[in-house]
Design a protein around this nucleic acid. Structure first.
Lengths: 157, 157
DNA sequence: TGTTAAAGGTTGCGTTTGTAACCAACAACG
DNA sequence: CGTTGTTGGTTACAAACGCAACCTTTAACA
């Protein structure tokens, strides 16, 4: 099969492929902000963000909101706890549940990463024409919203 | 730290995050096409696509074009070979190199997956307004193009 | 030629992930 | 109450990945 195959399918125009290339490129430069500086994984950063954004939450709450699987949350929570960024406190009403919150150090780390993220994000958006930016936001929001299926494996930011 | 943290950073408007959610959602429904039916991994599908698109190639060629790391290519090639979808033939000029090509069965599998991908892709694009589609293509292309750095880890389609 | 450097690929090892099974606590209901 | 089913969360095990080291063959060049 030495010759190219006759086909009308064009991978480079295939939306899932384009999205993944773009996502990969956009994430690459930012990961260092939490990976190198705090030894955090992507899921840890996301969990940290949610706790900062919403205050106290349970692991299940985070998973539902962030669409991350239970086991990934569980491991991220343990890692954050070991880094002293997160505190678990038992719930009085339901002894299965633990309420999670950021420690003071966790809040500080969050602020540092969020500052880098803000600047990074601004630089990314700056390369688009204003009307393209609006269209991009619309399309990405539509793609991310579709079904309310169970939490997918996850690719990450 | 029970209360939400005071911050102006909004994760849900953070471009890398939006891209990853969208990429994840867009890929989810398609992966079954090669995973369930042929037991292929994402990298295997990408390698197969490149061989179909360009005919014979070496592993390094594929890696450069698809921006996939050597070791992932190497393992994908072996997996495709074991599935009898791919044939390696030694190069006469350079004994380090192996020329890769799809077997007849590989071409058939490619066609089957490509057909599903085409239909899936059309359905995804159909949800956008025509002018949004153009803008989306522009933005994603711009994001994916930036630097010609060495092959990144890779997230996938 | 002999030496050194570089390129094509593969492999080993540790880390991260996905799936499924699991444990404990609670809820529903006879 | 006792049984049954569900929910919050963790763990075990097998895959997959990323990185670095490695082997072989070419290229550069003294």
């Amino acid at each position: 099969m030495a010759k190219p195959v006759e086909t009308d399918f064009d991978l480079s125009a295939f939306l899932p492929y384009m999205l993944n290339l773009a996502a990969e490129a956009a994430s690459a430069g930012f990961q260092a902000a939490y990976r190198d500086r705090y030894g955090m994984l992507r899921t840890e950063w996301r969990v940290m963000f949610h706790l900062a954004r919403f205050g106290e939450m349970t692991a299940t709450d985070i998973g539902r909101r962030a669409r991350i699987h239970k086991t990934k949350i569980s491991r991220a929570v343990r890692a954050l706890e070991e880094k002293r960024f997160l505190i678990r406190s038992p719930s009085a009403k339901d002894r299965r549940v633990e309420t999670l919150s950021l420690s003071r150090a966790g809040v500080e780390a969050f602020h540092a990463v969020a500052a880098i993220a803000s600047a990074y994000d601004a630089a990314l958006w700056a390369q688009f024409a204003p009307e393209d930016e609006a269209a991009l936001r619309r399309c990405l929001a539509a793609l991310a919203t579709p079904g309310d299926e169970p939490p997918p494996p996850g690719v990450g930011d």
